[in-house]
């Protein structure tokens, strides 16, 4: 069947929809409220929960900062704390931007173009996140060791020969699995928004 042939049948399909019973006012109003609650819970809750947890960690390091004597541990703590504060904020802002799209003002073309831009940003952000998490997994250990009274940990050969390689291997495999998942979802998204240059 060709599209022009389908067009001639569209009237018949349209008539069938017009004859459907009209949705009652009560049911329509109920739909809008239920949907709103569902959206709030499903999208924001995991993000907010993750942000609270990382903020708690950041708070812990800030409150213990004056107990750190090693300069290198102080620098690492500043880096880790900044990452724990900034990354969730960027994530929440991008999520908020995505959910604050003006459905009635933007044209579909503008909307699709914006989605494409957001996807590219999201992809770059996730890649940066992965690299940072690799560094984070290692760099959090020396200041943590100093805080629990084992500041010589980084001087022990076991730290460099066991902990660091095991940590990096774990981060590498975790990143590989996650990247594969992101690549797949990006491919699917690109298929949906194809034709926008």
């Amino acid at each position: 069947m060709e599209l022009d042939e389908m067009k001639s049948l569209w009237g018949s399909l349209s008539d069938a929809t017009e004859r459907k019973e009209k949705i009652k006012k009560e049911e329509l109003m109920k739909l809008t409220k239920r949907n709103y609650q569902r959206k709030l819970g499903k999208i924001y809750l995991p993000e907010i929960l993750g942000t609270v947890i990382t903020f708690l960690y950041a708070g812990f390091f800030i409150s213990q900062f004056d107990k750190l004597e090693f300069k290198v541990n102080q620098i690492l703590t500043i880096f880790n704390t900044s990452a724990m504060i900034l990354l969730p904020i960027i994530s929440l802002i991008s999520l908020n931007r995505l959910n604050r799209l003006d459905i009635s003002e933007n044209s579909p073309m503008e909307l699709v173009a914006k989605f494409k831009k957001d996807k590219v940003f999201f992809w770059k952000f996730q890649r940066m996140n992965m690299l940072l998490s690799g560094f984070f997994a290692i760099s959090i250990l020396p200041p943590l060791a100093e805080l629990v009274g084992k500041r010589d940990l980084i001087l022990e050969p076991q730290f460099w020969m066991v902990y660091v390689p095991v940590g990096l291997i774990c981060v590498y495999f975790f990143s590989k699995i996650t990247f594969r998942k992101y690549e797949k979802s990006l491919e699917e998204a690109e298929q949906l928004i194809e034709g926008i240059d």
Binding site: L13, L31, R34, L101, I103, S185, E188, L192, I193
Partner: peptide, 30 residues
């Protein structure tokens, strides 16, 4: 259309919140 684009772009398979009575896909009259 914008809602459909936005909805599909998020591409999350969700279960419908409310089941609408008498829902059926588009069909020809005859």
């Amino acid at each position: 259309m914008n809602t459909a684009i936005s909805h599909l772009n998020r591409s999350k398979k969700r279960i419908t919140a409310v089941s609408l009575e008498g829902w059926e896909s588009l069909r020809l009259e005859e």
